[in-house]
Design a protein around this nucleic acid. Structure first.
Lengths: 338, 338
DNA sequence: CTGAAAGCGCTAACAA
DNA sequence: TTGTTAGCGCTTTCAG
């Protein structure tokens, strides 16, 4: 036998499908005689009835799904975020449809198209391209959205972001307290909001802590990758600029530094200290274990999902944004300068 | 205006909705006058029409979704698998619904329930519990399934698995060629098929390569975790059994060994060589970089998705299983014994 | 409190 | 080749 439908339940219970529907839906159960309701429920159970959310969705125009737009699930940043999202969506009866954009605007457009046609009720967007025309367009078309890890500049969209500025300050302060005076920054790509925010935060932290704000101490990476980090550090080293510590734009960039250290026989942390950003898994297994700013990714995902569910429940509610506090995890890659 | 429906397109093109439907669907386009078809398509485009797969699904009893059942997305094993799956599903017009079971059988049951009620057309299951009664039940109820990373013993279900046995042999052979004679194995949990297969493969590889098959050289880990790996290695060390190399059940267990090496001042690879399994990201950044058996996770995911799509296309096709070849990645954690 | 009837958006017979 | 009709499984008016 096929999976039973509402009709089957109604027939078996000797009621009209509409009555069965009301009895089975907790929200409308009150409209029905308690006795009848009980009977319907029992029959439904014995038949192994499970409502078909697709059919329900067709009627109610709610799909029970939301789209998760991420660059690449394979980037260790995202799995915890996705997990945090799912853990909040699931008990609310929602599920997430993941798409990977590889940061390709064309692909992103396409994927979002596809999500919309699948009738997602909202979007959680974790792609980091700045100034996206698509963003405003979606906004205007009334697509509910929450931004993760990035605060849109021009558009009024709820967002949930780590407090990057404070995180960077934590890193710089830690180095200053160890006695460092010449601290370099390997900034992430400046066309990403994260890269920009962290680079700005670095310079103001340096000034606030009474160090000289020397532009020569900031190098830029073209990508958030080990290779780009290594290249930037090499350039910095080759420029002859003196420094005793590095604040990397993220952990991958910091890993690139490790490669250069091996290559040039530089002893970390004795010659140079390094601080990363994100606290990816297994950083404690590196030699030396990487000191880094820890970002609560799973919590970020959870908050994002909550924000979106709120927006779905009441689309008129003004858009709220959340800034999550970060912590510094001190490990072995930082030490006093010698 | 709301998003246009097929009706709107039909009206605007001056045809019946059914005609519009035929014109828009590539599969049935042949049934319609080429001229008319072109017109309908143009109108659809200009209106920004996008078909509603939910409504379509209600009619055709196909949801265009498949369920991905994994233990925990946060485990670095799974993101590449999921990515591989999505990359195959997407061009086929399908998308994946991910659920995390945390290896809790109750939760798993529940999640699969929920997936089924969402009308997924099939399941890709990557959870590793052996001998699952649920499995047979689903099978009997005609749920299409593909197993990833594990070959179900009793039930006839298509599966796609890495060739663990050969992988282990690769590892053991490498160590033997380096001159090791007393090689230990830190086996994963024996209630997982992976743990079992690798442990068996280890013993037969040892015999095949002419070493003594000493049971004292095999220790068992209760979990696939660093802590369990560390505990197992400590126990082995404390037992007084002599060995110069370790084949770890997976990379996490190998990482646990690194912790013990640090703790007990053991020099890897001079005192003890270690081989991992899986080739997780960033293993090359460890000190020493971990030699490990590389598993093509993304490809595994892709194959699994293909298998499932095949089964969906023709459910009567006999179930095929795939064994993917592995390679050994030699890094710095293995060296001749001293 | 319950039933009747209509319809969400689409597709698949069947008829013309 | 196109239109008609019916219906996927469910919810939601509106009567009764």
């Amino acid at each position: 036998m096929q999976t039973p439908t509402l009709r089957d339940v109604a027939d078996a219970a000797g009621v009209h499908p509409a009555t069965a529907s009301r009895a089975l839906n907790p929200a409308t159960r009150g409209l029905v005689n308690a006795e009848t309701a009980r009977r319907v429920i029992k029959v439904a159970e014995s038949l192994g009835y499970r409502p078909n959310p697709i059919a329900r969705g067709l009627k109610t125009a709610k799909s029970g799904t939301v789209g998760l737009v991420i660059p690449d699930l394979t980037n260790p940043l995202f799995p915890p975020i996705v997990r945090g999202i799912e853990d909040v969506l699931e008990p609310a009866g929602y599920s997430g449809l993941i798409v990977n954009t590889d940061n390709d605007p064309h692909r992103e457009r396409q994927q979002i198209e596809s999500l919309r046609s699948r009738q997602v009720e909202g979007l959680i967007v974790a792609t980091a391209l700045l100034d996206h025309p698509l963003l405003g367009q979606l906004r205007r078309e009334g697509v509910l959205m929450v931004m993760v890890n990035r605060r849109p500049e021009s558009v009024d969209v709820p967002s949930i972001t780590p407090d990057d500025a404070t995180g960077i300050e934590l890193a710089v302060r830690h180095l200053v307290e160890l006695g460092h005076r010449r601290i370099a920054h390997l900034a992430g790509p400046l066309n990403t909001s994260t890269g920009l925010v962290r680079a700005r935060a670095f310079r103001s932290a340096v000034r606030d802590l009474g160090l000289e704000d020397d532009p020569a101490l900031v190098a830029h990476c073209d990508y958030w990758s080990e290779d780009a980090g290594a290249a930037a550090l090499r350039a910095l080293l080759d420029s002859g600029t003196e420094f005793t510590a590095v604040v990397a734009g993220n952990d991958l960039i910091a890993l690139g530094c490790y490669d250069v250290f091996a290559e040039r026989d530089i002893d970390c942390p004795r010659d140079v200290s390094v601080v990363g950003f994100n606290d990816m898994p297994f950083l404690d297994k590196l030699r030396p274990p990487l000191t880094t700013v820890s970002v609560p990714h799973q919590q970020i995902g959870g908050e994002a999902a909550r924000l979106l569910l709120d927006a779905i429940a009441d689309p008129t509610r003004p858009s709220r944004s959340v800034l999550l506090p970060l912590t510094l995890v001190v490990r072995g890659s930082t030490a006093p300068p010698r």
